[in-house]
Design a protein around this nucleic acid. Sequence first.
DNA 1: GAGCTCTAATAACACCGTTAATTTAACGGT
DNA 2: ACCGTTAAATTAACGGTGTTATTAGAGCTC
Lengths: 210, 210
Amino acid sequence: MPRAVMSRDEISSMREAICDAAMELVRDHGPDAVSFRRIAAKLGCSYTTPYRYFARKDDILAALRARAFRAFGAALVRALGDADPTVAARLRALVVAYVRAANEDPDSYRLMLDLNQGNARSPDLVAAEEGALGTCREVIASAVATGDLPRGTDPNVVAHVFWAGAHGVVSLALAQQLVLDCTLDELVVVMADTLVQGVLASTASRNRRR
Amino acid sequence: MPRAVMSRDEISSMREAICDAAMELVRDHGPDAVSFRRIAAKLGCSYTTPYRYFARKDDILAALRARAFRAFGAALVRALGDADPTVAARLRALVVAYVRAANEDPDSYRLMLDLNQGNARSPDLVAAEEGALGTCREVIASAVATGDLPRGTDPNVVAHVFWAGAHGVVSLALAQQLVLDCTLDELVVVMADTLVQGVLASTASRNRRR
DNA sequence: GAGCTCTAATAACACCGTTAATTTAACGGT
DNA sequence: ACCGTTAAATTAACGGTGTTATTAGAGCTC
């Protein structure tokens, strides 16, 4: 029963309905279960109707990734509110919150940082990523500003090191590669402490050098 | 032209030929290009013949993963031969070699540590993984034995921290998430130094505590 | 040589992404 | 009030996929 001319709101709500159905499929039956046929079955429409709103299947997955990045960045910002104002505490809180958020929604995390992904980065997606990374970068930058970290350090590089550390733990855990006697939380704490002490030590050594 | 009864060698060489064709497809056209039809086309046989050697497509990919893990572990061992005998140097060499090996064969690395993978771990695969991780664990353990790292530290946990750090950098790079002014090699060095200084700092603090 | 087993090939099924052609409904102009 | 135009949805179709019977044939054992 086709109507003529949809409003912007109707279009975007249809896009969200498609994304909702797709995400439901991811959660219930894995990412490979996402298909135009199954989405249409959930929505009660024909299987070519979603093509009007997403030209390709990858575009649906990209929209899901953008959603995940936004929610993830918001979770990190929220976690930072409850942390002590010292650099070490804030950095540790960030890493811990990162792993916690990833574990609370592993399906979204897998979508976000899957290795086998084309590099189709929509502006929307890039913006969401920037938000998530920016949170970490701000903490470092303010620490550099207050002198808790040496003036020369590039906040962006250090932020990426912390991101990589947290992501490495999450990634190995999700890939079920961890063979540990301790729990995941303990490993995360060791990682966070090691990185924090590492940057502080490099600060001390540089200060000593002057 | 069917024959009766194949020798063990004939069977395993057929399995290897299938893996060779599959890996060629991965390198030339990406992981999604792996299909029984295309493998058979490369081998000049019917597309159901490979089913006699691998019950499911995932089994072929698992075999490729096992191959990749073996080669990767061997590369790490090789790199460790050329490193200074100090703990810091050896750990740094390991991280650098890890990233280099991953960058030299990103296709294999993607196969090894893809997030969206069923947890089908064959004994063959587990053994290969153990070999790769064991290399790192040995370095830590010997450092603990010589007193360069505190007695209490669990070599396995620290090895996993270093693994996660190196993997995190590689993983973000392969997922094209790094937005850096510096090169990847520089980021790796920062990560390695931070981790090494971190563990040494924790050593120092514990020694101070005694 | 008869019978049996192991290997390979052919056929078929259900599903997929994607495109083209077709129907249906609402809108604008007269 | 009608009609042409246009947007939305559907149906049909193509080429491809994993996987499972079913069938044909070569070699081994007796």
